[in-house]
């Protein structure tokens, strides 16, 4: 097991190198960062000075070697735009994004899983038909639309029309507490209030996906021999569902939850923008559009490591959830 984890982490290092090369080449192909940042009043001389200062006058491969050299010393370069270390800018905002992604995942699992399993167990009741049709709304409504509607209803209209209705905050992150130097907002009441609307917005799509996945796999599992056997043995329905069915539908749920969690952490841009959430997604998009290469490279290198690690966790979960899945490779 340990060997397996170490091998995966070594692969992660390789993947990070590949990623940095791709981003370097990609940004180079898109355009000139200096054009994006310098005042258009500047003369050619002043432009050259900026290029030189940021090493953009060197050939691509030399720029990359400079980056590698710095990276080996634990320095991923300074943001062109902010003049500060890119890693610092990213880590400053990471807690906010992780918090949001985690909250939305918990919310969608807490709601999606029970509803989905229920719909799978009793596919022909009116309740489960409502659940299934309702879940379609969860993903056919665009994300930004849902977010905006939630703001309009819970932060503007309801408190205006209904006296005494609490006004939910529509933007930003609430009060934070310092835990080991990391600012966390979900430990304060104000922080939770601010978290509510964006987390609900994000969890709608995920929740719908989990409902449908849980139902489909539950229906798949129910006719299986071992469930029939468990029934025949006279096990309680609760035990059959809670242990035998649930255990068998967890692999697809774990896969998709992992994927969705990763996608939210990396790219929750739309929700972050609409709720002015000070997370990394917004930083990434701004940096891409301004061609702020150090930030983009640093960010994606972190994210790709994060994905490798996340998928490692999911793979480890597989073997916990279903002992038949062997992680150690059989062919080497």
């Amino acid at each position: 097991m340990i060997v397996y984890i170490i091998r995966r982490l070594m692969q992660a290092a390789l993947v990070m190198v590949v990623m940095s090369v791709l981003v370097f080449a990609g940004i180079y192909l898109i355009g000139d960062p200096v054009l994006m940042m310098i005042s258009p009043d500047a003369s050619e001389l002043e432009r050259e000075a900026v290029r030189k200062a940021l090493h953009l006058d060197l050939p691509m491969w030399q720029q990359y070697l400079l980056f590698v050299n710095d990276a080996l010393h634990g320095n991923f370069g300074k943001s062109f735009l902010a003049g500060q270390p890119a890693m610092g800018l990213i880590f400053e905002r990471f807690p906010a994004t992780l918090e949001l992604a985690f909250a939305s995942l918990v919310l969608s699992l807490a709601i999606g899983l029970p509803l989905g399993v229920y719909a799978g167990l009793r596919p022909h009741t009116a309740g489960s038909k409502t659940i299934m049709t309702g879940s379609i709304l969860g993903f056919s409504l665009p994300n930004f639309w849902v977010g905006l509607m939630l703001i309009m209803v819970f932060a503007v209209l309801l408190p205006d029309l209904v006296p005494g209705w609490p006004r939910l905050p529509a933007s930003g992150r609430g009060a934070t507490v310092d835990v080991l130097g990391v600012k966390l907002s979900f430990l304060t009441g104000d922080g939770l209030l601010h978290l509510l609307l964006p987390a609900v917005t994000l969890s709608l799509y995920k929740g719908a996906l989990i409902v449908r996945l849980a139902r489909a796999t539950a229906r798949e599992v129910l006719p299986m021999d071992y469930v029939k056997f468990a029934r025949a043995k006279g096990l309680s329905e609760r035990r059959i569902v809670g242990v035998h069915v649930l255990k068998n539908i967890m692999i697809p749920i774990a896969t998709v939850s992992g994927l969705e969690f990763g996608q939210t952490v990396a790219f929750a841009v739309v929700t972050e923008t609409i709720f002015s959430w000070p997370g990394v997604g917004k930083l990434l998009i701004d940096s891409i559009l301004l061609l702020d290469r150090p930030v983009v490279v640093a960010y994606l290198v972190i994210i790709v490591f994060f994905f490798v690690a996340l998928n490692l966790v999911v793979d480890l979960l597989y073997s916990v959830l279903d002992p038949r899945v062997r992680l150690e490779s059989r062919a080497t």
Partner: peptide, 19 residues
């Protein structure tokens, strides 16, 4: 000064009294 970059969100923040 609070950065609210999305146009519609900025209006919503004004209407809800956030700013």
């Amino acid at each position: 000064l609070r950065p609210l970059s999305n146009n519609t969100a900025r209006v919503a923040a004004l209407l809800s009294g956030d700013v």
